[in-house]
Design a protein around this nucleic acid. Structure first.
Lengths: 151, 151
DNA sequence: ATACAACCTGAAGTTAACTCGAGGTCAAGC
DNA sequence: GCTTGACCTCGAGTTAACTTCAGGTTGTAT
């Protein structure tokens, strides 16, 4: 089975132009061409495409992915480099996920803040009396309500 | 308690220039100035700073954060807009986290791939005999090993 | 046979989010 | 009184990752 650039773009969920850009930046040294000069991707190339897609989505810059792919082309001498690269980015991704989960918790508390304000018809319910300053205890009130709903 | 731009930069973990940029882009209409023209952040401003930090880290573009902050300045008429904004980004963030977790799982399988290759001294152990094409069964072998280690 | 969609290249353009440089103000410490 | 560090503005420069444009080739369906 072979694939054309459009198939790859669909598979990676990016534009055809983006694929050409990746290729130009050295992410696809494995790609063949047909006699008209069109890119032809083989079945085994899909392993690389999967790797590139994953790394892109994980926020690894194109140049770094290029380094990794270069190593893949060089053979067994670079096995350790590749392993360390992955281990490093595994750790980074773990951190990022943890951070995003904290951000998500924060967004949820703010959502509660606005839901309750909306129910009351005004944000005043969260302010210190007579001011427009947020009562520092409101967050605790939310956390308590959260715990309460865990039954 | 009041804070200066350097304090805010440290708190948000970005450069002082970045804070000035955010301000210029309309993210900080609440900030006061001292008589020398220096930015002065009040205790209540820290609520906004927290929101901005969270949204930035969640990947929300500066312009969109600006829209949200504008709504905050406008009062109770925009409560619903703000609630919907948060609900929308909550959903996006949930999706992104799910996606990153899948990417993390993929990175881990690739790490296993290279660890085993490293132990064997060659990537050949993952190739179909006589080729340089990855054996499609290798991933299943990894998954099986994963399950096995769950004891 | 001709239209059309899908592919190609090279070069220029775009956008977001900073970053840097030049030139200046101000308060505190020596 | 003078230096130093933290702040200021304005405007230009940078970078990554595409995107768009102009002009051209192919293979297939009507």
């Amino acid at each position: 089975m072979i694939y054309k650039i459009g198939d790859i773009a669909r598979e990676m969920d990016v534009s055809v132009d983006a694929i050409r850009y990746y290729d130009k930046e050295g992410l696809m040294p494995f790609v063949d061409r047909d006699k008209a000069g069109r890119r032809v991707f083989k079945e085994n190339d899909m392993n690389f495409i999967e790797v590139i897609k994953c790394m892109k989505q994980s926020g690894i810059p194109v140049k770094e992915i290029g380094t990794f792919i270069d190593w893949c082309m060089e053979g067994d001498d670079t096995l350790n480099d590749r392993f360390e690269f992955l281990a490093e980015h595994e750790a980074k991704l773990e951190d990022e996920i943890k951070n995003l989960q904290e951000n998500l918790a924060f967004l949820r508390w703010k959502k509660w803040y606005y839901k309750t304000a909306l129910d009351a018809g005004t944000e005043d319910i969260h302010f210190l009396p007579g001011t427009r300053e947020v009562d520092p205890n409101e967050r605790k009130r939310y956390e308590a309500e959260l715990k309460n709903n865990e039954d």
